[in-house]
Simulated assay, not measured.
Amino acid sequence: MTDILELSATATPAEILRAGLAAAGGPVKLACSFSVEDVVLVDLIAELGLPIGTFALDTGRLNEETYEVAEALADRYRLAIDWYFPRHEAVEALERERGPFSFRRSLAERHHCCQIRKVEPLGRALHGLAGWVTGMRREQSVTRSGLRAIEIDTVNGGIVKINPLLAWDEAQVWAYAESRRLPVNRLHRQGYRSIGCAPCTRPVAPGEHPRAGRWWWEAAEHKECGLHRRR
């Protein structure tokens, strides 16, 4: 396992995916948010013919444009997407007791919302898996600068976590997507460089950091939803 995890700094996404599958030694799925990075990974996995499934988390607050990408991928690749939703009782209690915009009151309130809408469903999505694939990249934020190509996800039961695009910059991602004419979220063309839940995402101005539009009322070091926690 140690030898597999220590990949060359120049390892390609394809090499990382193959090594990650070998390290997992069991079922692996891509966590797809339908970002341009995840669309690239769907295409790459299909091209390589790798036995990697796909799941998605529907928080109940996604943009219409996000569902359009999901449908386009399902049609183009005959992709079976396993959708996971938050527990309806938890969402009902959240909105009844705290209101629809409680997440903007404090970091703790926002984490509470993400726990219900994202983290708990992720736990169910990962149940029974030996590994999962993400579209995270090091340059996306200060919270991701320490990413490794293949990690042991101690928060989620010690399964393998595979980050094939960790070393790519935004230009490389878009060059691949455009060369392959991949279906991408229309919001990207409207200034959205990182897309999450609709109330938590806005376009960024020229020169702003790509994730400046995510939870824009918070400090940069807090801009994670809890899906990629580290111990």
Rank of each mutant, 00 (worst) to 15 (best):
M1Q: 07
D3Y: 10
I4H: 00
I4D: 00
E6I: 00
S8R: 11
A9S: 07
A9W: 03
T10M: 07
A11H: 10
R18V: 03
G20D: 03
L21C: 03
L21M: 05
A22D: 00
A24C: 02
G26I: 06
P27A: 06
P27T: 08
A31R: 07
V36M: 06
V36H: 10
E37A: 08
E37R: 02
D38G: 11
L41D: 02
D43S: 10
E47K: 14
E47S: 13
L48F: 13
L48N: 13
L48D: 12
G49L: 06
L50M: 09
F55H: 07
L57M: 13
D58M: 06
T59L: 09
N63K: 04
N63V: 05
E64S: 03
A70N: 15
A70P: 13
E71I: 02
D75R: 13
Y77I: 00
A80Y: 14
D82N: 14
D82A: 15
D82Y: 15
W83P: 09
F85C: 09
P86L: 11
P86Q: 09
P86M: 14
E89P: 01
A90S: 05
L94E: 09
L94N: 06
G99W: 13
G99N: 12
P100H: 06
F103S: 14
F103L: 10
F103K: 14
R104T: 13
S106D: 05
L107I: 03
L107D: 02
E109P: 00
E109I: 02
H111Y: 08
H111G: 02
C113H: 14
C113T: 09
C113Y: 14
C114I: 12
I116N: 11
P121W: 14
L122A: 13
L122H: 06
A125S: 06
L126P: 02
H127R: 12
G128Y: 07
G131R: 05
W132Y: 05
E139Q: 03
Q140G: 03
S141Y: 02
S141G: 12
T143C: 12
T143M: 11
L147Q: 04
I150L: 15
E151D: 08
N156H: 15
G158Q: 04
I159Y: 07
I162D: 09
I162F: 12
N163T: 04
P164H: 10
W168H: 12
E170F: 14
A171I: 03
Q172H: 12
V173I: 15
W174I: 03
A177T: 08
E178C: 03
P183L: 07
L187T: 00
L187V: 00
R189N: 00
R193E: 09
C197L: 10
A198S: 14
P199Y: 13
R202W: 02
R202E: 09
P203Q: 11
V204N: 15
V204D: 15
A205H: 12
G207K: 11
P210V: 04
A212P: 10
G213F: 05
R214I: 01
W217C: 10
E218W: 03
A220L: 06
A220D: 13
E221K: 08
R229A: 11
R230I: 00
